[in-house]
């Protein structure tokens, strides 16, 4: 049975540190597949203008392709080069909930995330995502500082 690890990326150095750790871990485990995931913070309960709604589908596609291009594809390429089985994905939603549901879907054995995102205000935000995840995840969570 291939062990699956879910790694939450944030597009910053902090996410990269989580990814390095997961890479080392995969090496130790042997038969392992890493799923790198980038979650775009989104809620179905937000309030928008009619114009935003009309353009939402287009924006969503743009957000996904930007995330793939900037964060996921480079990460996947780097891991593949080192001979690690890897898949990438981008999802919209609440960071903690999304990472958790991904790990349930693929039956991951643990989630690896950074403690908080590098950089000013984002630290506050991602930090609480990690805290949320730790408190609500249904699989073990490894927090990389």
């Amino acid at each position: 049975m291939t062990t699956k690890l879910v790694v939450g990326l944030d597009g910053k150095g902090s996410g990269d540190r989580a990814l390095s750790y997961a890479k080392n871990l995969a090496g130790l485990i042997g038969d392992c597949e890493i799923l790198v995931a980038y979650i775009i913070e989104w809620s179905p309960y937000s309030f928008q203008t009619p114009e935003e709604n009309a353009e939402r589908h287009k924006r969503r596609e743009e957000e996904i392709s930007t995330a793939l291009e900037r964060v996921i594809d480079p990460a996947v390429a780097a891991l593949k080069k080192d001979g690690i089985k890897v898949k990438g994905m981008v999802r919209h939603g609440h960071v903690a909930d999304a990472l958790n549901s991904i790990s349930e879907e693929v039956k991951a054995s643990q989630i690896v995330v950074s403690r908080s995102s590098d950089g000013g205000l984002a630290t506050r935000i991602f930090g609480s995502s990690t805290a949320n995840l730790v408190m609500t995840a249904s699989v073990p969570v490894t927090v990389v500082g």
Binding site: I40, W42, P44, Y45, R60, E63, G93
Partner: peptide, 15 residues
Amino acid sequence: PNDAGEVSHFQALAT
């Protein structure tokens, strides 16, 4: 869930 990120029913109603 695959439609996450698109306009939800709530958002259409709220707008």
